[in-house]
């Protein structure tokens, strides 16, 4: 067995792959959020940022996309395989079980992960490829596309719900991935994980703000 195979075949190896791929996506999510928030500076600012990404920075954008895709695949595959192993490890459930330490974040990792994966597909079909057009969308006019979409209540609702799961996923994921990677940071006490709490709240708020603000006509 080669080293890579033996690493990947262990539960710890898979967890490390999940943690690293997860952290890559956390980094991306933060950049994405910062980009989105430019909507509050008006159409020109946001659209020129988009033009920059698709113009001079196009090669970088593609590298990022490839890295993200690889990270996503690694994350999903390792999550799937670990889930299968974990399920098999307890074939007979308890008649009564009362969890004491697991948080809402840790308990919703799997269902939240599936929801987020579906959301990512929707989101790419919606804003990247413009395949789904809840309202009429125009290539290149990111600002207008955002405004048009989020004025629809049901679109905003989908995004708001998905972002709740993103926040929960990040809260547990950020904390557990640094721990998985060997850092003894943050406590088991769910309120003593400052970085994870701040990160989850900021990302959740940053992403939720845009659709909600658009819906309530608070964007210039």
């Amino acid at each position: 067995m080669t080293r890579a195979v033996s690493f990947w075949s262990s539960t710890v190896g898979k967890k490390i792959v999940m943690a690293v791929s997860g952290l890559i996506m956390v980094g991306f999510v933060i950049l994405h959020m910062v980009g989105n928030l430019q909507i509050f500076e008006g159409s020109a600012k946001l659209n020129s940022y988009s033009a920059f990404l698709h113009g001079p920075a196009n090669e970088v954008l593609w590298i990022v996309r490839v890295v993200l895709l690889l990270a996503l695949v690694a994350h999903v595959v390792s999550a799937y395989q670990l889930t299968v192993l974990d399920r098999a490890a307890r074939p007979v459930p308890y008649a009564k079980r009362d969890l004491q330490a697991a948080t809402i974040g840790s308990r919703t990792m799997r269902i939240g992960g599936i929801i987020l994966a579906l959301f990512i597909v929707l989101h790419i079909l919606h804003f990247t490829t413009l395949t789904l057009q809840p309202a009429a969308l125009t290539e290149g006019d990111v600002y207008a596309n955002g405004i048009a979409s989020f004025q629809l209540g049901w679109v905003t609702a989908i995004y708001v719900v998905a972002m709740i799961f993103l926040g929960l996923h990040l809260y547990h994921g950020a904390w557990s991935s640094v721990r998985t990677l060997g850092f003894e940071r943050g406590r088991l006490d769910p309120f003593k994980r400052p970085v994870a709490i701040v990160l989850a709240l900021v990302v959740w708020a940053g992403f939720t703000l845009v659709p909600v603000a658009v819906y309530f006509h608070l964007v210039p």
């Binding site: 262990s10 539960t11 710890v12 967890k15 330490a101 840790s106 904390w175």
Partner: peptide, 24 residues
């Protein structure tokens, strides 16, 4: 490496850091 491999071979699941073990 050896102990983790044996742990997996026995059919135990992987850690997702729920933290239940520490309290138990």
């Amino acid at each position: 490496v050896e102990m983790v491999a044996q742990h997996d071979a026995e059919g135990f699941g992987g850690c997702t850091l729920h933290g239940e073990c520490q309290l138990a």
